[in-house]
Every structure is written in structure tokens, then in C-alpha cells.
Amino acid sequence: MRPDHRLAIIVSHTHWDLEWYLPFHRFRVNMVEVIDRVLDALEQDPEFRHFVLDGQSAVLEDYLAAAPRQRERVGRHIRSGRLAVGPWYILPDEFLVSGEATVRNLLCGHRVVAPFGRAQKVGYMPDSFGHVAQIPQILQLAGIDSFIFTRGLGDEAEQLGWLFRWLAPDGSSVLAVNQCDGYCNAGGLGFAEIWHAHTRRTVDLGLATGKVRDLLEKMEQRPGAYPALLNNGCDHFPPQQEFGSVLQALREAFPGTRFRHGRFEDFLAAARADTPDEERPAHRGELLGGKDHLILSGVWSTRMYLKQENELVQGLLARTVEPLAALAHFHHGDTYPAGLIDDAWRNLASPPRGRPASSS
């Protein structure tokens, strides 16, 4: 790609651990404030065009339970495509749950968004601790042909670059996008410390352009540097402060690069316009490497009693409750308890309103 054709897509987002170093209810208080500010930014800042409400529709569900007055406002922005939600219900830790639980998680995520509009059709999994080989197959069956992630690549990352085709055992493939420096790579622009984004303080435009310069230089060390994906957010982050000024500063500091505020779908479309998927390098198998980001596999063995109970319940649902309910319906005319079963899968996915890794 010629230097004057370089493109950088800035995707504003927040990543929401439903519980983590604070309990669920404490985090939900913060959530209401953050999402209120997102809605204000979408309506008041002409440069602030899109926001990704993580890849988990449980965030939307929990926000509206605490702020039902915002239901129409949220729905309007989802329908217009300016607020992206889903496709998952919660961010799955794929090695801790069954394949059926992963599928139900995705179905539930779509179901929560459906009353408001279309779920985000991007396989956005920014902070899962490794990925099972069947994820491309599951995503394709849900009508999703992309996968955006941070953790999981090993030494193969040098040859694959930032964009590659990931193939499942059955041959299904998705365009995989590895987030250089992670899903927070352009979060908190203009602050000396990224966590200053949680506070009100002056934005230093020199710090903002310097951080993006370092990031672009790092991207250029591997194939697939452009279009560049700048993830403007991080854990529990509100929208970027002084966004319009930051965007203008980037355009002035990098005259050879076009900066656009957009969605993950916009980035994927630009990447495919630059290079068709079939011309990208291919990779098969699980993503369990830790070259750039640790997998944090210690969560797989903590609080084992919770994992054993989860295994028991998901087995009962898939292999006992649903088959017997179907048998009773088709052979005896009993009413199939679809709502109760769907609710059981939903509660199993997020019993304390936290993903397995956060709760472990």
C-alpha cells in the first residue's frame, strides 16, 4: 500500500468486566455513568459517530435494568448503527464451558439485542483467555465472518501478521484480526497514564499523537499494518475526552494517514477492500500462544468446585432436560418449556453477572 493511501480506523469502545476487582453492583453504578456519557457524546459531539458497547449484550441488559428511562434513547442509537452491541451475551472463557454453552451464549446475545435492532455481526472477543479451534465454525453458523481478538497467538504471529484467515477443523474460516498491543491500544489518548481516562483532567494532544505514532510504528513491524485498527477504550472506560480535538491533532500530525472514526465493520470492510480474505495467510487450530499477551490459564484451575458444578448443570440441560422435554412434547403433547430452558442457559452463562474468568 502506498504511504499516501494509509488508513487508520478509530473504534471507540468500553470493555466491561461485569464483576472483577469490584462486585457486580458496584460496577453497575459505574456502568450507568459511563453509558450515560456515551449517549451524550453520540448526540452532542459531531465528530463522535460510533461506540462499541463491548461484545456482550448483558451490558445492555444490566444498564437498562438500572436506567429504564434510557430505553428509547438506546434503541434509537442501536437502530441507526451508531451504538454496537453483542453478538455475545457474555464474553466466554471457551475452555471452561461446553461447546453447547458457547452456542447458547451467542444465541442469547442476539436475542437480547433483537428488540432494539441488529446485533453487532462481528466475532469480537477481546479478552478471552485463548480460543478453541471451532470458533470460526460457530461464528459462521451465526452469520459472522470475522474474529477480533487480543490473546492467543504464539511465534506464528510474526508470519501471520495482524490479519489472517483462521480455519476451523470443518474448513469454515473467518477473517481474524489480532489487536496490536491489545484492545486498549489507543485508550485514554492524551493522558500520562491510561487509567487517567477515568478522571477529569486536561488532554495533552502531544501525548495523544506520540502514543499513536508508537503504535503505528509497532504495527508496521508485521504484515497487515494497514488499515490500522486503533482501539479507543479499555476496561470500564467512558468515551474519549475532547475527542474532536484529539482527532484533529492526529490528522495534522500524520498528513499521510487518513483517520476515520468508525465501527469494527468499517475496519473489516476497509481491510477486505485492501486485500481479499483468500490472499491472507491461513492458520488452523487452537489459539493458545502467549507471545504478545498472556493467556492467564491459572483461571482454569481456581475455585474448582464452581467449574465442577457448571459442568454438571450444563450437562443436565443439554443431555437430560432438553431431550426429555422434547420427548414429552412430541410423544405426549406436553408444552415445551422453551422460555424456562432459555432462561436456564442464560443464568448458567452469567450466574453472578460475571464471566467465568472474572468469577474464578
Rank of each mutant, 00 (worst) to 15 (best):
R26S: 11
F27W: 10
N30S: 11
M31Y: 07
R37I: 02
D40S: 09
P46S: 09
P46W: 11
H50S: 08
V52Q: 07
G55M: 10
D62S: 12
D62P: 00
A65Y: 03
A67W: 05
Q70F: 02
R71V: 10
E72D: 12
V74G: 05
V74K: 12
R79T: 05
G81Q: 05
R82V: 01
V85E: 13
P87S: 11
P92S: 09
F95V: 04
V97Q: 09
R104I: 02
L106P: 01
C108Y: 04
H110V: 09
V113F: 01
A114T: 10
G117Q: 12
V122A: 02
G123H: 05
Q137K: 14
L141C: 13
A142L: 10
A157I: 06
E158L: 12
G161T: 04
R165Q: 14
L167Q: 11
D170L: 08
S173N: 04
V174I: 08
D181N: 09
E193P: 00
H196S: 09
H196R: 13
K211P: 01
P223D: 06
G224R: 10
N232L: 09
P239N: 12
Q240W: 03
Q240S: 10
R260G: 00
R272G: 01
R272I: 09
R272E: 15
E279V: 00
R284S: 15
L287K: 07
Y305R: 14
E322I: 14
F330W: 13
H331W: 10
Y336K: 13
D342H: 12
N347Q: 14
